[in-house]
Design a protein around this nucleic acid. Structure first.
Lengths: 219, 219
DNA sequence: TATATAATTTAGGTATGCCTAAAATAATTT
DNA sequence: AAATTATTTTAGGCATACCTAAATTATATA
């Protein structure tokens, strides 16, 4: 069995790999809030377990085995988030932190029961895809909200998680995955968006909009 | 924040203290499946934190602060057991192991939500009392099933947890807390019990009966 | 190309929590 | 009371996973 720390490293490598670009020791360390030297140490250990491949100064890559574990942890995390949200009413800006601890200790049996309770969902409360039992992720390319123009309407697909202040802010506007809105006005010079959401007109700053992704864009 | 190991030690000291008798290093170590030397080390650490008092060769005692933490962990454990059982249908012989891991990571917020969902219960699936938020345990003295005589009827109050084979065995007879049964016959020479439970007549070995406690005994 | 800067790795140290083996202390038996 | 036995504690080790500081390697600049 892997340690929690090792699982966190694999998960982080996967996520950074997804974002594209090479996953250097430094980037990984920064992401995990540890020092580069610590990341080097763990990478060495994961390498002996054949979960990552790594050439000095060249960045890390997950092996198939490593990727499978990373996806398992991510599945735990996202199912837990959704379960906490739906079954226990934990606010969406709190589920991430909670799931971060639970993902390492939940059994496959309990996970399967939560999965069933939730009706085999495919996205967590932030809209991120939940890998299936076999580690298959169905990725859908979403449109950044910042690409929207005046007069367009759409549906929120996903928002960045892990910043709970941002999530509370978005929640205040009802900007949850599945919610539809229309763009009323885009201020010039890369300014804020005025949108019509649930009958309300609200202004969303550009920095905030960068963290929102949408689907079903129509004129 | 305490480590998981430290929490386990406090919980174990509490439970052993409950059973009566002095809690020696050796007994504590055996209970936790570690060597006596390891227990000595942790006791020393807990002592510097003023969570236990300890005089060399004299056994450990929880301080008020230590007892409060022990009860908090026990509350986590038992609420989790009941939640897993009622909300997710985890079989009662599996909830202990699962709760053992979760009790150290569950937040007070999630715990409060589970408590509410369960309607502020006072006993776990094995009939053990759940301490309240303030660490108050309402203990009820139960009667050992082995004290029962022919012709008496009663209601199962509590069974020992932590031995899942035993729990599966008892579950096979419907011998859950809350279930009523009557004693049909007690075999001589400290022999087995024949009981009438849910219309069925079943034989319960004495070694098994030792782990069952009952209430509401009537002739 | 040589040098300065940045990233990475190595080396050595800390804390936790377990271990074994030996020493110290207590309890029991003769 | 003395000797044996059992328990507890001390001493020293190991693995994990972090740290800092120094050495190495790569990259960018002059």
């Amino acid at each position: 069995m892997l340690t929690h720390a090792a699982e966190d490293y694999l998960k982080s490598i996967y996520k950074l790999q997804e974002k594209g670009g090479k996953v250097s020791t430094g980037i990984l360390a920064a992401y995990l809030n540890v020092k580069p030297a610590s990341a080097t140490g763990m990478i060495k250990k994961l390498k002996t377990m054949k979960l990552v491949s790594h050439k000095r100064y060249q960045g890390v890559t997950l092996t198939d085995a490593g990727k499978a574990i990373a996806l398992e942890i991510i599945r735990h995390h996202r199912l837990l988030e959704l379960y906490l949200f739906k079954a226990l009413g934990v606010p969406w800006d709190g589920v991430h932190e909670e799931a971060e601890k639970l993902e390492h200790v939940i059994s496959e049996d309990v996970e399967a029961r939560m999965d069933e309770f939730l009706g085999y969902p495919t996205a967590d409360p932030h809209g991120a895809p939940i890998p299936d039992k076999n580690g298959v992720v169905t990725k859908i390319a979403h449109i950044p909200m910042t690409d929207l123009r005046e007069g367009q309407s759409c549906v929120v697909a996903e928002v960045s998680d892990s910043d709970s202040a941002l999530l509370r802010h978005l929640g205040g506007f009802n900007l949850y995955p599945g919610t539809a809105f229309g763009v009323v006005e885009v201020a010039p010079f890369e300014g804020p968006f005025t949108i019509n959401i649930a009958g309300q007109q609200v202004v969303i700053g550009r920095e905030v909009a960068k963290h929102v992704f949408v689907d079903n864009v129509e004129e």
